[in-house]
Amino acid sequence: MDARILQRTCLLWALACCALSVRGQFAVSLPESVAEDSGRPFRQKHEVKVDDPRLECIYAFAGKDPEIKVVRRVAYIMQIGAKWTKWSDYSDYLKDSVCWRTDWKITVGEMDERFGKWSSFWQESQLRDRAGDTFACMGGTTYDRFIYEDSTARMDWTLTEDTATVCGYACRKATARFRGRDWTAWYAEKLPEDAGPWKLHGLPGLILRAEADSGLLRFEAVQVRVPEGETYYVARTIPGPEDVPMAREDVLKLEREVLTGFDTYMEQKLAKLSPSERPTIQVASLKRMFYQPLELE
């Protein structure tokens, strides 16, 4: 029951925020039982420490969806450890780190007070095993969770002599075509880590800026920091029964279906709730959410 309430709460607020982002008219009323649930712990511990981060970089992402004329801006964090790197939504990272600091005792209400109820509707995080160069990816929506392993994410970079300063570091330019998009990356040789935003890596320095298809998608570092003291570790999430193993190509297909047919998707999901649990939701002009996948093939 708890899991269902949590799912429903997340779903409602994600829905409300998404509706705002496309300026749709919406109205949501929560059943009483949801509001009473704020004293429950926000999250159970379902992760293990795999590494200590020796460098962290926060990236600002901006993506354009010309079809609905929306620019999506999100912050991400890359934690770089000796053996593992982890890429996650910065908002989720903050929540996870607060859970860890409070020994997983922080409640839903306390978390809402600190961070509000917003979280990305479509989420994806990647944990990269640096030795095997494989990515363990997981994410999805509140209803459809996926996990998959990506062992073919390799970029054939062409190095150039162009230079630029990004986030205070001198950077060199490199270009590569990766899964249907032409990427331009700027890496800092002063930061000798073969990592970068999302799955981009394989350069002789940390990638601080990357953009695809003439700025349609863009990551730019806004903070590079060396963790000091007791910092939140690089964590591997233990998959639960709701995390379904899928092929990478199927995940891309699911992402397209969810985000380009949002109203249909939501109707299907809400229909599965019993009438007493079903919230009153009116959403207009929300056929499509922001959709501009990082990989096309």
Binding site: C167, G168, Y169, Q223, V224, R225, V226
Partner: peptide
Amino acid sequence: GQQLREVTV
């Protein structure tokens, strides 16, 4: 280690 500059834009 290298003396890294912590930089925040």
